[in-house]
């Protein structure tokens, strides 16, 4: 019997596989496909204080080995997410989940994280300072060490639960941002968010996305994500939730060897609603194949 369990800042997970924020609705949608209680945890859709529709459509574009999205943090607002949406999820899922919080000011981050911290059923607070699809917020906090530190510190002050800062790959040195988050009191790091990209439509000779640019995800970004997990693991000794193009049980093992304690799966769920289920079911076979008894034992094993 192989051991799939891991522990994220004191929270025990049956396995390291977590559907990523924004690629899994509010979770309960997937209960129509399979029993989602097999998942290690679930990261909720990115949430802001006020309801948001997000950007204009089209907000999806395709590319080789992935897709671009410019959804722009559509959500019904923090009260509705922690109220109605979480209640619906709790009916079909019994483990602690990850709140994913975004904001347009330090005060907004603090307000939403404090609410999430007080909400039963939320195990970890993932703070998104890396959304490439909103202006004057999101990624602008995550591309400078000073503002990353400022948000982390403000959120830390109001949260008793583990705080994971979700970082952007769209920076010169992700280790510098990671170090600033550690200084601010982060318990862990989620990396990476999407890479900023774009596509043009040859018929209209204009960008496909109404927002012009969008965030690239899918297998195309996996090597970039893996490299950043590797670098940050060496530079900043904090637990890491690794994500970016993870699509198979082999990818999960690779991400953990690079330094991830748990792994999130995003784009793969959009192509195949059973992606997380298939990864979890295949993990024991892959572990046996490579002589791995316990996933806990391989974290950072490649260093």
């Amino acid at each position: 019997m192989v051991d799939l369990s891991v522990e994220l800042s004191g929270i025990a997970l049956d396995n390291p596989v977590i559907p990523a924020s924004g690629a899994f609705g509010y979770g309960y949608e997937f209960a129509e496909w399979y029993d989602i209680n097999i998942l290690g945890s679930i990261a909720l859709k990115g949430t802001t204080r006020e309801p948001r529709f997000g950007n204009d459509t089209p907000r999806i574009a395709e590319c080789a080995c992935g897709l671009l999205n410019s959804v722009g943090l559509q959500n019904p607002g923090i009260e509705a997410v922690l109220g109605q949406e979480l209640a619906k999820l709790k009916r079909v899922y019994s483990k602690p989940v990850i709140a994913n919080i975004s904001g347009f000011s330090v005060e907004e981050y603090r307000y939403c994280c404090a609410l999430a911290d007080r909400t039963e059923g939320i195990g970890i607070i993932e703070v998104n300072i890396s959304c490439p699809n909103v202006h004057d917020g999101g990624m602008s906090f995550g591309t400078k060490p000073e503002s990353a530190y400022e948000v982390t510190k403000a959120v830390r002050e109001v949260c008793g639960k583990p705080v994971y800062m979700k970082l952007s790959p769209n920076v010169a040195d992700i280790c510098e941002i990671a170090a600033a988050c550690r200084e601010g009191g982060a318990d862990g790091l989620s990396l990476i968010n999407t890479l900023m990209g774009m596509r043009l439509d040859l018929k209209t000779k204009k960008p496909v996305l109404a927002n012009k640019t969008g965030g690239l995800s899918g297998p195309a970004v996996f090597p970039v994500a893996l490299r950043m997990v590797w670098q940050v693991y060496e530079a900043v000794r904090l637990p890491i939730i690794g994500m970016g193009g993870v699509s198979s049980a082999e990818d999960v093992v690779e991400m953990m060897l690079a330094g991830a304690t748990a792994v999130q799966v995003g784009a793969a769920n959009l192509k195949n609603p059973y992606a997380c289920k298939e990864i979890i079911e295949r993990l024991p076979k892959v572990m046996e194949k490579y002589g791995i008894d316990s996933l806990k034992g391989i974290i950072g094993g490649a260093h």
Partner: peptide, 14 residues
């Protein structure tokens, strides 16, 4: 509308 998933997961086509 241009869709990501087609079953409500990504909010791409709202």
């Amino acid at each position: 509308e241009r869709m990501g998933c087609g079953f409500g997961a990504c909010m791409g086509c709202s």
